[in-house]
Every structure is written in C-alpha cells, then in structure tokens.
Design a protein around this nucleic acid. Structure first.
Length: 430
RNA sequence: UCCUCGGUAGCUCAAUGGCAGAGCAUCCGGCUGUUAACCGGAGGGUUGCUGGUUCGAGUCCAGCCCGAGGAGCCA
C-alpha cells in the first residue's frame, strides 16, 4: 500500500511503500539506517541484513545521497526515531542513482547553496520554510476571500512608474515601446475598488533598486488590498486582522515546521489585536529617548525601525509620516496637512516594515498638485485622475510583502530563503 | 553608488614572509541501534586573475574580477 511520510502514523503495524529519495545513510556491518524523504517529510528506514538477505543488503551498501527509491516495509512506532516512527525495510527499489550530490550533510556557505538553489530546496529546513510560505499565502487568500474581497489582479507590464520614486526594470515591448515591470498594483487596485468595492491583487513585484540587505529582493510577492469608502482607521484594522489571522493559521497548522526552524513560537503567540499605534511624532520622541540618531522629517531607517519594534511584543503601526517622504497618492491629514494619512506596520524582533499603506488622495485638484510636485508625467496618470473625476470616494489599502512576512514568522536571518528562487542584485541563477 | 569583510582540496576552514594542512565528502576495509554515527587506510591543490616588491609570496603592495554584510531606497 502506498503511503506518505506526513501521515505515516495512520499506518502503524501495516506494510507500506514509500516513494522518495535517500536523504542520508548510516551503515553498520549488518544494518543500514536510511533517512528517506518523500516531499511530505523525513523518516528513518531500517534495513537489517537478516531481514532482506545478503544480496539486497550489499546493494544498499553503496546507496548515495538523493538516490530516488521506493522502500517497502512495516511501520513501527519507535521512541528512538525523530518523528516517532520508523519503517522496517523488507524490499527496496532504486529508480535513479545520484553521484557526488553537491550538498552534503555538513555545512556550506550561502553563495555555494544559492548557486545550487534547485537542489538546496530539497533540504529539511528549506522544505519547512516553503511549507510555511505556502500556508501564509493560503491564509492571506482565505482572509480576504472570507471578508468579501474580490481577487482582481493588476498588470505586470506597465507603461510607466506607479510611484515614480524607485527604479524600474525596463523591458522591450514589441518594436519601439518600452514597458516596465510593475513595482506595485496600487494604482490599478484603486480603479478596481471603484468597480468592485473591496479588492485585492496578489502577484510578483519588481524593484530595480541596488539594495543589498537581508530584507531585499528584486523580485518579490506582494498582496495588496484596496477598499472603497474606507479611511485610515479601516486600513489599520484590516492590516491588524490580516496579520493576526495569518500568524494564527501558521501556529495552528505548521508547528512541526516552526520546530524544525527552531522558531520561538511564544513570540508568535503574542501577535493578537490590538497592535500598538504610534504617530510618526511619537515614534520620533521614542527614538530621541533611546538616543537613536534620527533626523526629524526623514523616513525611518532600518535601525530606527528595529529600535521602535523592540519596545513592543507585537507588530506596531506607525502613522502620520511627513507627507514629503511618502508617495504622491497618499492623502494629507486635513488636521495637519504636512502629515500623510498613512500607516507602516513594523514586525517585531527587528524584522522591520512588512506592511505599508494608507488612505489615498481622493481630491482631483490636490492629486494633480502632488503629481506636479513629484515631477511625474501628467499624461501617464490621466486614467488615474479619472477615478477622481467620476464619483471619487474616500478609499485606502496597503501592500504586504510576503517574503518579509514569512521571514519574520520563520525567524530567518534573510528573506532569500523564503522564496524558491530568490532574485537579487547579483543573483539571477538558477 | 558608498563603507566594511571575504575568495586556499568537491565542501567548511587552518597555515609568524620559509616543505600546502585538517575535518567532512569520495573510494577501500571494519562494525546490528545509528541520530551531522564511529574506527583504520587511500586518492585529491593554477592558494580568484594580472602585475610588482623579495633570495623566497597563500601571506606584503597595486589594479581588476567575484561574493557577503550594511547604508541609501523600499515591502
């Protein structure tokens, strides 16, 4: 009977066949310990000379790492085994051999592993991270679908800068047109929200910034909800609801993976609403109290975010940044026009900004002014201005970077491990 | 783009300006409860590249290439 390792507990006492790969092998004169993985988990298969006979035992003597094989045997609970179960092999079939597998059980450098990312993802740690990523994405979709949001994806080829502030990847679009890879679905989302009320897009995003830090990728995935008839308060509540629901789901379904990653889950248990809320001015005061060198009026830097988030045990929402440092479409606070109705959510433990968003400028004249002030080509935004010409309403939303979110939930050092094939400044292979 | 650090065996790393080394991996042998198993043996080198200083350079100097961490920018 065919079985998978994930549900091996349901097969105790029965004879099963596992289809997988040899992850590692330890051998004695008359007993082999084969660590087999099948994509759903890892298990130790025990092959004794007495049980399989001399010939079969000898053949298994030289099985090497990542040989694809099927093992058949009885499932047995065993306290000595990691995972609690073992399989006593009665027969073994090899499908494809594997010589000099480059990723050995010993340590390797990051550069070496990234050059072999297509093989690295087979490791226990990497498969655990990718399962958590899957769960985060799945929880995000369930959250929005459950709240009546319509998935309405935005284009990846775009005619011009969405925000005009960051560098874009140009691509040749037929003979004589240049298109750019999207850096945000934001503007299209606003149009979609005027059509469907509550929408979200979820796709890859591209930033040609020459960033070289543990928080940056040139290609990453972002989920962006947008709501018509919504203000900053609604946006913050939505962000809070999303994060608490995603963390709760991962804790509920991916404990074994978090354990493999040695994640301190008590820190995730504390991620419940409400999140602390600070204005930019309050944040600046806190930074000054901590002696953090910070120039009032500028955006928060990486170390500023770390100092702030360390003061709380859950994500913190920072609102009302100076309008000057934020994107042109942010609505100014009517009560203090130099501040924007925006929110950044900073993850705990120094993981920094994982969500950025706010209320959008819905007044035609003010928006035109902002476009001019940012030196953006007005003709590129005519369609966007139409949204203010034909039934403008207060609206808002945010973007959440999936990789930063997964990195935080998994407790990783670098976002590059949260995506199957990371794209970075100096890395486009494999 | 800037700052800092690094590049030596397949991998991870040692080596005061003076014989190029270890562990793991690989191959051979041993071992019936191993958990990155262990024990014995063998093979394995254009020290990133180019030039310079020196009796002598992995080591010092210059330039270049590649990578990592950080800054700026951002999710």
């Amino acid at each position: 009977m065919r079985a998978s390792i994930a549900d091996i507990a349901t097969h105790v006492g029965r004879q099963v066949t596992l289809h997988g790969w040899l992850h590692a092998r330890r051998s004695s004169g008359k007993i082999h310990f084969l660590i087999v993985r099948d994509g759903t988990g890892f298990i130790q298969a025990v092959m004794s000379k007495a049980a399989v006979g001399d010939e079969a035992f000898l053949r298994a003597d030289h099985l090497s790492q990542e040989t694809s094989l099927s093992v058949t045997g009885a499932v047995r609970a065993d306290a000595r085994a990691r995972g609690g179960y073992e399989i006593d092999v009665t027969s073994l079939e090899v499908h494809g051999d594997s010589h000099d597998y480059p990723i050995t059980p010993k340590e390797h450098g990051v550069d070496y592993l990234l050059d072999r990312r297509h093989l690295w993802i087979r490791s226990e740690r990497q498969t655990a991270i990718l399962r958590v990523r899957h769960e985060v994405i799945s929880a995000v979709r369930d959250f929005f679908n459950g709240r009546g949001f319509i998935l309405c994806d935005t284009p990846i080829f775009t005619p011009a800068a969405c925000e005009g502030t960051t560098t874009l990847f140009p691509v040749q679009y037929f003979e004589d047109t240049t298109a750019y890879l999207t850096q945000s679905g934001q503007l299209y989302n606003e149009a979609n929200a005027m059509a469907l009320g509550k929408v979200y897009c979820f796709g890859p995003t591209f930033r040609a910034e020459k960033s070289k830090t543990r928080r940056h990728l040139t290609e990453f995935w972002m989920v962006e909800p947008e709501m018509a008839y919504a203000d900053l308060h609604d946006v913050i509540e939505l962000a809070e609801g999303l994060l608490t629901s995603v963390v709760a789901r991962v804790l509920e379904t991916r404990r074994p993976e978090l354990q493999i990653l040695e994640r301190d889950t008590s820190k995730l248990e504390r991620v419940t609403a409400p999140f602390p809320r600070l204005t930019y001015d309050e944040a600046a005061r806190r930074l000054a109290e901590k002696g953090q060198p910070f120039e009032y009026g500028t955006d928060l830097g990486g170390s500023d975010e770390t100092v702030l988030s360390e003061q709380f045990d859950r994500p913190v929402c920072v609102t009302h940044y100076p309008a000057a440092v934020k994107a042109f479409y942010m609505k100014a606070d009517p009560r203090q026009p130099d501040k924007a109705l925006c929110v950044d959510v900073l993850a705990p433990e120094g993981y920094g900004e994982i969500i950025g968003g706010g209320q959008r400028e819905d007044d035609l004249q003010r928006l035109e002014q902002r476009i001019r002030a940012h030196n953006l080509p007005p003709q590129a935004f005519e369609w966007y201005l139409d949204l203010r010409r034909y039934g403008s309403v207060p609206h808002g939303g945010f973007g959440m970077g999936i990789e930063r979110c997964v990195s935080w939930i998994c407790g990783l050092e670098h976002v590059r491990e949260t995506i199957p094939y990371p794209r970075m400044l100096y890395r486009l292979y494999p």
